[in-house]
């Protein structure tokens, strides 16, 4: 069963233009999908629609085979976890405490942790490589470390699907490479399904199992890197100079 299906999905803002129409998308178990597209093409809106934060104009989203609209917020939170761009970093919070927030959908109203919760937190921190700074204030961490802590928080939610909106923004190149490698390991070694929006085309092409591409003019393309190159989709989204840019690293 797919972790995520979008059936005949049309997204956009109620009054404004449609950003993409009649999308049929799916994400399988252990699959890493990268969402590409220029600024303003609607990547964030698509992700927010998949998350249920924005209502689709038409069509529907299935999470683990069940209609997302039929699930209450808490049931949905056990299936999809997200790290969005408009997050806020609280102060007086240690890295471990932030990761532990991921258990909120699983615990009772007193937020009491059982063994399962503790193991999930420990596993999430280990997988994201943040165990070493579990006691540090999140505000004292570097951008790269903090991004990994936010990822660990989403992992601690133990979702069927992880949605990450531009997780590599603001990071330097080594950190970007490291993050994308981490996503690939989570997908391919731990069976975690991920949808990651990014501007790092080369890294996405290298690691993603499939790409989703929004060209900013209402067209949507999906497939492997080779599929998209054959369709000329990357050129249409990013301009004619793009093919040359892409081909150079691919030859090496």
């Amino acid at each position: 069963m797919n972790r995520l299906d979008a059936v005949d999905l049309t997204i956009g803002h109620k009054a404004g233009r449609r950003l993409a129409s009649a999308l049929n998308l799916h994400v399988g178990e252990g699959e890493l999908v990268c969402l590409l597209g220029p600024n303003g093409s609607g990547k964030s809106t698509l992700l927010r629609t998949l998350l249920g934060l924005v209502a689709p104009l038409s069509g529907h989203v299935l999470v683990g085979g069940e209609a997302a609209s039929a699930l209450d917020v808490r049931a949905l939170a056990k299936r999809i976890a997200a790290v969005l761009t408009d997050r806020e970093i609280p102060y007086a919070m240690t890295a471990r405490e932030l990761v532990a927030l991921g258990r909120i959908p699983h615990t009772n109203w007193m937020n009491q942790f059982g063994d399962e919760d503790e193991s999930a937190i420990a596993w999430a921190m280990q997988s994201a490589g943040v165990t070493a700074f579990s006691d540090r204030w999140v505000t004292d961490l570097s951008d790269g470390e903090r991004q990994k802590v936010l990822l660990a928080r989403a992992l601690a939610q133990q979702p069927l699907l992880l949605i990450l909106d531009e997780p590599t923004a603001y990071l330097d190149l080594p950190r970007r490479v490291e993050m994308m490698g981490l996503f690939a390991r989570l997908a391919h070694e731990h069976g975690q399904s991920l949808v990651v929006s990014t501007h790092d085309l080369d890294l996405a092409m290298r690691h993603a199992d499939r790409l989703w591409l929004m060209d900013g003019n209402g067209s949507f393309y999906q497939g492997t890197t080779d599929d998209l190159l054959e369709q000329g989709a990357l050129r249409r989204a990013f301009g004619p100079a793009f093919d040359d840019y892409v081909r150079v690293p691919r030859l090496s």
């Binding site: 939170a77 997200a82 970093i89």
Partner: peptide
């Protein structure tokens, strides 16, 4: 108290945590 813990990260993240 518990919903407020989720709100520490902003309202969208709180929704994503089932709040």
């Amino acid at each position: 108290a518990k919903p407020l813990n989720g709100l520490l990260m902003g309202e969208d993240t709180a929704r994503g945590l089932g709040i």
